[in-house]
Design a protein around this nucleic acid. Structure first.
Lengths: 334, 334
DNA sequence: GCTTAAAATGAAAACGGTTACATATTAATT
DNA sequence: AATTAATATGTAACCGTTTTCATTTTAAGC
């Protein structure tokens, strides 16, 4: 592989001149510039970017910790990250952590070992351990979607409480009073927030909160199906079910259909996230749209700002949500 | 940040000894080994992996070109890659290329500029251009899922022709003779192969191939929906539709329902891929299961073998498929 | 205890760039 | 034409490792 010295020799100039020609062409005379460019072509020179990154101390890599890349919502977020990163000249190193702290820690080390400049975490968990503390304080991280809100790191999130409240209000406005909720994993703060929003709406409508209408889940189709089955066979069935994500809702709807319950006549179902599938299930799912790609873009932008020292205090960005009413929710009958 | 020299000073040894202690501990005496280890702890040393990679010439990064990370099937493939890569000590650099050759080319450059050791391409397209040719021939690449079968690069794929034939035979065995096909993008060889398999089965059953039963698609829910709508309003409707992936099938089913067609009584629907959603739609989708994660694992393993010079001739790995019969396909009525 | 082989360690070069500083060249000013 | 300023180029140090080769220390053999 030809290196910069080969180019210098071929062009009859010094390596410094070659480097300058490639980095800041305006600093070298047109004549030598041409000579150098020709030599680059002639010897087939490709700068060794590993050397560049090493020398400059900037890798232009960003590590992204994703609980599951197979999650459709995260896939959209990642897509947005890729775009923004490409525009800003960064590459994304994607880690599929399965929510495992050890795996997270492993990838987080890439930041402390100079393999990546910063990290984006999509789970409410600090992936750094004591051995990774930097001399000058915190390692550069941005926390998105699922967030730990301790003011240390920039955060980009949704007002999950308000969104859950809006959805619950929608169900209440349709006449529902027995509204079940299929939750996400308890470990996720997001789940807690949405629960609070749900309670807010109930309280506001003077509906007593009923613990027995809460069902466990983990954001998967299967968990939604399982909870849906349980709900189907309840003696006093709720008339509406609010699911903490769309996969859960789709799984639950499937269980209802197999139990011969009609959605929404027998039971209304609402989701959260507005993944692509939600508009194509039967009936199309009422849900909360989140600007997933924008989450990704914003997280990357914040992180790059952080790396460039453009951020003093950790900002907290709240993204807008939108209630999407489709056909899976309807008037409470009976 | 403490470097290897700080450790050497702190331990009172040379940098060479520190390096050896960390790389090949057996080559240094137990006494100094302890001294060095203690010094590493004391100064909080973390090797700069950028420097290591630069020096060693091995980045242990693999670039993966994915047309869309948001595609559920690819998400599973990526998941398998991550696993295998982690086991082998490699990192995955994921590029969301949107099937755009320029973006692919941009990321492919990472290999020729020593930012990554090799590349995995999930699309049937050579991402390298003339400027990226290596002195010693081809750049290390493995082609998976959608493949160009020119014998230059290792390949891991499905026998798409056989799989499509199996599915078509299944439909024929249910009494269907007018079987429509909603295709993938024409640019994909995979689409052509599946079409051939479909024709194979028709020919074998002495059913004339009818060009008018072919509908265009691009693997998205929306394309499936659009084709489904068209099919619904056909004067002489087919009794079965074979879709080239599950998203397409789910989109089409939705269109059929909205046209008041019952699946499978009025029309049978079959998909391809067996994504998670397929078991949770109504009715559950008959499809071809592909070992997606295994595709990813195999691709990574092949690439690493290639990098280690363990491969002489480009191997061609054919993964097994499985026909999954669920409730979206049924006997042809009338 | 002396010689020799083996093991442990250190000094310094190398990897491929960037960049501060010194020097040479050109242009501008009088 | 001489002086000065601006521009262009070259020299060499540097980034943090690994690794070759030389040297020192330790162990083994007699």
């Amino acid at each position: 592989m030809a290196n910069i010295r080969d180019v210098a020799d071929s062009a009859g100039v010094s390596v410094a001149t070659v480097s300058r020609t490639l980095q800041q062409p305006e600093r070298v005379s047109p004549k030598t510039r041409n000579k150098v460019m020709a030599a680059v072509q002639a010897v087939g020179y490709k700068p060794n970017l590993m050397a560049v990154k090493f020398r400059s101390g900037k890798t232009h890599n960003l590590v992204v910790l994703v609980p599951t890349v197979a999650n459709v919502f995260f896939a959209r977020v990642i897509s947005g990250m890729q775009e923004a990163a490409a525009e800003l000249g960064y590459s994304i190193l994607l880690a599929n952590t399965l929510g495992n702290s050890e795996i997270e820690c492993h990838y987080a080390k890439m930041v402390s070992t100079s393999q990546a400049d910063g990290l984006i975490q999509l789970r409410a968990h600090n992936p750094f351990d004591a051995t990774m503390i930097n001399d000058n304080g915190l390692l550069p991280m941005v926390n998105a979607c699922e967030v730990i809100d301790d003011g240390q790191y920039p955060v980009v999130s949704l007002d999950n409480r308000a969104a859950a409240k809006a959805m619950t209000e929608h169900l209440i406005s349709l006449g529902h009073t027995r509204i079940a909720m299929i939750k996400g994993p308890n470990s996720s703060p997001l789940t807690q927030e949405r629960l609070v929003g749900y309670k807010d709406a109930l309280a506001q409508a003077n509906i007593a909160f009923d613990e027995s209408l809460l069902f466990p889940g983990d954001f998967t189709l299967q968990a939604g199906y399982n909870a849906g089955e349980t709900i189907s066979h309840l003696e006093s069935r709720p008339t509406a079910v609010f699911c903490e994500n769309d996969e859960t809702a789709i799984g639950a709807m499937q269980a209802f259909k197999q139990a011969n319950l009609h959605v929404p006549n027998d039971i209304s179902v609402a989701g959260f996230d507005d993944i692509a599938f939600s508009a194509f299930v039967d009936p199309p799912l009422t849900t909360i749209a989140q600007p997933a790609e924008e989450f990704g873009r914003t997280a990357v932008t914040l992180l790059v700002d952080l790396l460039n020292g453009k951020i003093r205090k950790a900002p907290k960005v709240i993204m807008p949500f939108e209630l999407i009413v489709r056909e899976s929710t309807g008037k409470a009958l009976g």
